[in-house]
Protein backbone atom coordinates (compact mmCIF):
# COMPACT_ATOMS: atom_id res chain seq x y z
CA UNK A 1 0.00 0.00 0.00
CA UNK A 2 2.80 2.35 0.96
CA UNK A 3 4.54 1.67 -2.34
CA UNK A 4 1.37 2.50 -4.28
CA UNK A 5 1.09 5.84 -2.45
CA UNK A 6 4.73 6.44 -3.23
CA UNK A 7 4.11 5.77 -6.95
CA UNK A 8 1.10 8.07 -6.96
CA UNK A 9 2.87 10.99 -5.30
CA UNK A 10 6.10 10.62 -7.25
CA UNK A 11 4.22 10.73 -10.54
CA UNK A 12 1.99 13.56 -9.34
CA UNK A 13 5.23 15.45 -8.70
CA UNK A 14 6.44 14.60 -12.21
CA UNK A 15 3.09 15.83 -13.57
CA UNK A 16 3.39 19.17 -11.78
CA UNK A 17 6.92 19.71 -12.99
CA UNK A 18 6.26 18.81 -16.63
CA UNK A 19 5.60 21.98 -18.57
CA UNK A 20 4.57 21.39 -22.16
CA UNK A 21 5.10 18.21 -24.12
CA UNK A 22 6.33 14.79 -23.17
CA UNK A 23 9.94 15.61 -24.04
CA UNK A 24 10.11 18.17 -21.25
CA UNK A 25 9.46 15.30 -18.89
CA UNK A 26 12.57 13.20 -19.49
CA UNK A 27 15.00 15.15 -17.27
CA UNK A 28 12.43 15.23 -14.45
CA UNK A 29 11.84 11.50 -14.75
CA UNK A 30 15.58 10.94 -14.65
CA UNK A 31 15.84 12.82 -11.38
CA UNK A 32 12.78 11.33 -9.67
CA UNK A 33 12.66 7.76 -10.98
CA UNK A 34 16.35 6.99 -11.56
CA UNK A 35 18.27 9.17 -9.08
CA UNK A 36 15.84 9.57 -6.17
CA UNK A 37 13.70 6.42 -6.16
CA UNK A 38 15.99 4.08 -8.08
CA UNK A 39 12.95 2.40 -9.66
CA UNK A 40 14.72 2.03 -12.99
CA UNK A 41 18.20 2.42 -14.42
CA UNK A 42 19.06 5.16 -16.88
CA UNK A 43 18.97 2.65 -19.77
CA UNK A 44 15.62 1.21 -18.71
CA UNK A 45 14.12 4.68 -18.51
CA UNK A 46 15.31 5.56 -22.01
CA UNK A 47 13.79 2.28 -23.22
CA UNK A 48 10.46 3.02 -21.51
CA UNK A 49 10.50 6.50 -22.96
CA UNK A 50 11.24 5.21 -26.47
CA UNK A 51 8.37 2.74 -26.25
CA UNK A 52 6.16 5.47 -24.78
CA UNK A 53 6.80 7.41 -27.95
CA UNK A 54 6.00 4.57 -30.31
CA UNK A 55 2.79 3.45 -28.65
CA UNK A 56 -0.42 5.44 -29.05
CA UNK A 57 -1.35 8.04 -26.46
CA UNK A 58 0.33 10.79 -24.49
CA UNK A 59 4.05 10.02 -24.01
CA UNK A 60 4.08 11.13 -20.36
CA UNK A 61 1.16 8.83 -19.53
CA UNK A 62 2.67 5.89 -21.37
CA UNK A 63 5.97 6.24 -19.53
CA UNK A 64 4.20 6.52 -16.16
CA UNK A 65 2.18 3.37 -16.88
CA UNK A 66 5.39 1.58 -17.82
CA UNK A 67 7.34 2.46 -14.68
CA UNK A 68 4.33 1.78 -12.42
CA UNK A 69 3.71 -1.55 -14.05
CA UNK A 70 7.31 -2.70 -13.79
CA UNK A 71 7.33 -1.72 -10.11
CA UNK A 72 3.96 -2.97 -8.82
CA UNK A 73 2.21 -4.78 -11.67
CA UNK A 74 -1.09 -3.76 -13.27
CA UNK A 75 -2.29 -1.86 -10.20
CA UNK A 76 1.02 0.01 -10.06
CA UNK A 77 0.62 1.03 -13.70
CA UNK A 78 -2.87 2.37 -13.05
CA UNK A 79 -1.85 4.22 -9.86
CA UNK A 80 1.20 5.85 -11.53
CA UNK A 81 -0.99 6.98 -14.44
CA UNK A 82 -3.60 8.46 -12.10
CA UNK A 83 -0.75 10.24 -10.32
CA UNK A 84 0.61 11.85 -13.47
CA UNK A 85 -2.81 13.21 -14.54
CA UNK A 86 -3.91 14.31 -11.05
CA UNK A 87 -2.24 17.78 -11.06
CA UNK A 88 -3.67 18.54 -14.52
CA UNK A 89 -7.18 17.77 -13.31
CA UNK A 90 -6.92 20.18 -10.39
CA UNK A 91 -5.03 23.00 -12.13
CA UNK A 92 -7.02 22.98 -15.37
CA UNK A 93 -10.38 22.71 -13.57
CA UNK A 94 -9.50 25.75 -11.47
CA UNK A 95 -8.20 27.75 -14.43
CA UNK A 96 -11.03 26.79 -16.79
CA UNK A 97 -13.51 27.87 -14.15
CA UNK A 98 -11.80 31.24 -13.73
CA UNK A 99 -11.44 31.79 -17.49
CA UNK A 100 -15.10 30.93 -18.10
CA UNK A 101 -16.16 33.36 -15.41
CA UNK A 102 -14.23 36.25 -16.98
CA UNK A 103 -14.47 35.34 -20.65
CA UNK A 104 -17.28 37.80 -21.32
CA UNK A 105 -15.01 40.78 -20.49
CA UNK A 106 -13.78 42.61 -23.57
CA UNK A 107 -10.21 42.89 -22.30
CA UNK A 108 -10.02 39.13 -21.70
CA UNK A 109 -11.32 38.50 -25.20
CA UNK A 110 -8.65 40.78 -26.65
CA UNK A 111 -5.97 39.00 -24.61
CA UNK A 112 -7.09 35.66 -26.02
CA UNK A 113 -7.18 37.20 -29.50
CA UNK A 114 -3.44 37.76 -29.14
CA UNK A 115 -2.87 34.39 -27.47
CA UNK A 116 -4.57 32.49 -30.30
CA UNK A 117 -2.16 34.02 -32.80
CA UNK A 118 0.71 32.83 -30.63
CA UNK A 119 -0.80 29.32 -30.60
CA UNK A 120 -0.81 29.32 -34.41
CA UNK A 121 2.90 30.14 -34.46
CA UNK A 122 3.63 27.49 -31.80
CA UNK A 123 1.81 24.84 -33.87
CA UNK A 124 3.72 25.87 -37.01
CA UNK A 125 7.00 25.59 -35.08
CA UNK A 126 6.00 22.16 -33.71
CA UNK A 127 5.10 20.94 -37.21
CA UNK A 128 8.45 22.11 -38.61
CA UNK A 129 10.29 20.30 -35.82
CA UNK A 130 8.28 17.11 -36.30
CA UNK A 131 8.67 17.38 -40.08
CA UNK A 132 12.47 17.27 -39.79
CA UNK A 133 12.26 14.15 -37.65
CA UNK A 134 9.58 12.24 -39.54
CA UNK A 135 10.03 13.13 -43.21
CA UNK A 136 13.18 11.25 -44.08
CA UNK A 137 12.92 10.59 -47.82
CA UNK A 138 10.64 10.92 -50.83
CA UNK A 139 8.23 8.23 -49.63
CA UNK A 140 7.66 9.84 -46.24
CA UNK A 141 7.34 13.23 -47.95
CA UNK A 142 4.57 11.84 -50.17
CA UNK A 143 2.79 10.37 -47.14
CA UNK A 144 3.05 13.74 -45.36
CA UNK A 145 1.65 15.67 -48.34
CA UNK A 146 -1.17 13.21 -49.02
CA UNK A 147 -2.27 13.11 -45.36
CA UNK A 148 -2.10 16.91 -45.01
CA UNK A 149 -4.24 17.40 -48.13
CA UNK A 150 -6.58 14.51 -47.28
CA UNK A 151 -7.16 15.72 -43.76
CA UNK A 152 -7.71 19.32 -44.89
CA UNK A 153 -10.04 18.69 -47.81
CA UNK A 154 -11.98 15.55 -46.87
CA UNK A 155 -14.22 15.02 -43.84
CA UNK A 156 -12.54 11.66 -43.07
CA UNK A 157 -11.56 10.93 -39.47
CA UNK A 158 -7.88 11.10 -38.42
CA UNK A 159 -8.29 7.45 -37.35
CA UNK A 160 -8.60 6.37 -40.99
CA UNK A 161 -5.45 8.26 -41.96
CA UNK A 162 -3.50 6.78 -39.04
CA UNK A 163 -4.52 3.22 -39.95
CA UNK A 164 -3.80 3.77 -43.66
CA UNK A 165 -0.36 5.22 -43.00
CA UNK A 166 0.62 2.34 -40.70
CA UNK A 167 -0.30 -0.09 -43.49
CA UNK A 168 1.59 2.08 -46.01
CA UNK A 169 4.65 2.11 -43.78
CA UNK A 170 4.67 -1.69 -43.55
CA UNK A 171 4.00 -2.18 -47.27
CA UNK A 172 6.67 0.32 -48.32
CA UNK A 173 9.51 -0.89 -46.14
CA UNK A 174 8.92 -4.63 -45.97
CA UNK A 175 8.46 -4.95 -49.73
CA UNK A 176 11.37 -2.63 -50.41
CA UNK A 177 13.46 -4.97 -48.29
CA UNK A 178 14.71 -2.11 -46.14
CA UNK A 179 13.50 -3.22 -42.73
Amino acid sequence: MKELFDLFFTFAKVGVMTFGGGYAMLPILQREVVDNKKWATEEELVDYFAIGQCTPGVIAVNTATFVGNSKKGVLGGIVATLGVVFPSLIIISLLAGVIEAFSHLEIVQHAFGGVRICVCVLIINAVVKLFKKSVLDVKTLIIFILITLGSTFTPLSPIIFILLSAICGIALTIKGGKA
Partner: peptide, 25 residues
Protein backbone atom coordinates in the same frame (compact mmCIF):
# COMPACT_ATOMS: atom_id res chain seq x y z
CA UNK B 1 10.32 -5.03 -38.01
CA UNK B 2 6.56 -4.60 -38.48
CA UNK B 3 6.35 -2.12 -35.60
CA UNK B 4 9.36 -0.25 -36.99
CA UNK B 5 7.99 -0.06 -40.50
CA UNK B 6 4.49 0.89 -39.33
CA UNK B 7 6.07 3.86 -37.58
CA UNK B 8 7.98 4.75 -40.73
CA UNK B 9 4.55 5.56 -42.21
CA UNK B 10 2.88 6.74 -38.99
CA UNK B 11 5.31 9.54 -38.14
CA UNK B 12 4.95 11.62 -41.33
CA UNK B 13 1.19 10.97 -41.25
CA UNK B 14 0.89 12.24 -37.70
CA UNK B 15 2.88 15.33 -38.70
CA UNK B 16 0.56 15.81 -41.68
CA UNK B 17 -2.53 15.60 -39.44
CA UNK B 18 -1.12 18.22 -37.08
CA UNK B 19 -0.14 20.43 -40.04
CA UNK B 20 -3.69 20.22 -41.38
CA UNK B 21 -5.23 21.08 -38.00
CA UNK B 22 -2.70 23.90 -37.65
CA UNK B 23 -3.69 25.31 -41.04
CA UNK B 24 -7.35 25.27 -40.04
CA UNK B 25 -6.60 27.04 -36.75
Amino acid sequence: KYVKSAFYGLRPASTGLIASAGLSV
